[in-house]
Design a protein around this nucleic acid. Structure first.
Lengths: 230, 230
DNA sequence: TTTGTGATAATTGTATGCAACTATGCTCGA
DNA sequence: TCGAGCATAGTTGCATACAATTATCACAAA
């Protein structure tokens, strides 16, 4: 792993953790001195982050962390509603026994975690949920589809999504997982796609329910950063 | 426009024109000396091309122009069938008078070019066709959807596609354009999406009809390049 | 003949210095 | 008092030198 790779992951992690606020600038010299690298690998990492859509490059002025508006979130869900069903549609034709077992195991884990009520369990569910979806993408066996989803399903959107769920929504989501696995066992791509579509639309509904908080917070943060740099 | 930008477009153009064959390596020093730039902007251009999917980076060994197999083409069409209808579905709700007029004008131009029989006209149709689709994407007003399509609809696939069309297929394609415009005028997203879906599936059928030629040629070219570099 | 090992050459990866560009704030003039 | 122009500081863009890594080829031993 090269220095540029390391810097890339570090900066990305910081953006996700909120270490770098939306709207703030990531200076090549500053982070270079901090991590004890020259500007060259920093530059390369930043360009990768730009093409990933995490930061925007302003010529001769710097790399700014992008902010997420409610509109952006809607756009992402609109695309997920198209692409995620396609994932399972393909997976249904290609999935193998071992992968089905793995998916079942993930579904088991998530349901067990559901029994517990604390916040910590929610975070664990989110982790397993990501594994579940990742395994589906693997089974779909389409590098391009995989890449599009990775581009789109930016973590800041999905990462705290389970926290917005009511208990009912959480249980329904678990049911969706079960049903997706069942549909895949039957090699019924359309069934799987239909449930996945519902799964994403349900997630969208939960997200949209609390429009204002997430949105204005982000934008305020961005506005503040803009002021502070000027 | 920076040096890195210029280099980026030059290399991209050469890949499209076949100047750089699939499987061949693009050396930083070689092209740097040729274009009289240092390796720095070349590197940056190559990394952008990597993240665009035009070349693949092999650590410590170089940047290789990727080859297209028939399987890749199928994958792309599968995604276009999902995404392009979504473009017009959105466009139907948002498109404005001026844009509709522009689309009509493009449709007119393409039909006029259809009258002529020569190969040159086909190329011109392809250009206007690209403008037509680009205008639709603009009308859809979804930066992420636009980006996804730009990532996917790599030109080597679509660029010579009209040459494979029979006269019937060409005329039908023109009819599709007309009908899409008509559906958008009616603000009927589902109608537009249905026609667009047919439009893409027709293109897919024409492309698939001549499987072997494109495929083996590409792969042969790649194999040859691999041998020559060793 | 084949396989393992080491030297060597070629290529990318990184550091550093300088150039170019942009924004900001100050000064001068109207 | 306001606006235009200019100087300056700060940042990115680029060139170049050097380091690190990897593939290749020759050669020797089994």
């Amino acid at each position: 792993m090269t220095a540029a790779d390391r810097v890339y992951y570090i900066i990305k992690q910081r953006i996700l953790n909120g270490g770098y606020a939306a709207g703030s600038y990531v200076r090549e010299t500053a982070i270079g001195e901090e991590l004890d690298y020259s500007r060259t690998p920093i530059r390369e990492a930043l360009r990768r982050l730009v093409s990933d859509g995490w930061v925007e490059a302003i010529p001769h002025h710097g790399a700014r962390v992008v902010g997420w508006t409610q509109h952006d979130v809607e756009e992402v869900f609109e695309l997920r509603v198209l692409l995620e069903p396609q994932v399972v549609r393909r997976a249904a034709k290609r999935i193998r026994e071992a992968q089905l077992n793995l998916l079942t195991s993930f579904a088991d884990q998530m349901e067990m975690l559901c029994e517990q009520e604390d916040e910590c369990a929610i975070d664990k569910i989110a982790v397993v949920n990501n594994q579940f979806h990742a395994e589906l993408v693997t089974a779909a066996d389409s590098p391009r589809l995989q890449r599009l989803l990775e581009t789109i399903v930016q973590v800041p959107v999905s990462r705290r999504s389970f926290h917005h769920y009511t208990r009912d929504e959480l249980l329904r989501s678990m049911q969706h997982h079960r049903e997706i696995v069942r549909a895949l066992q039957s090699q019924d791509g359309e069934w799987a796609a239909a449930i996945m579509r519902a799964h994403i639309l349900a997630a969208r509904a939960a997200q949209m329910r609390q429009k204002q908080p997430g949105n204005t917070a982000q934008v305020e943060q961005q506005r503040k950063s803009e002021l502070s740099t000027s």
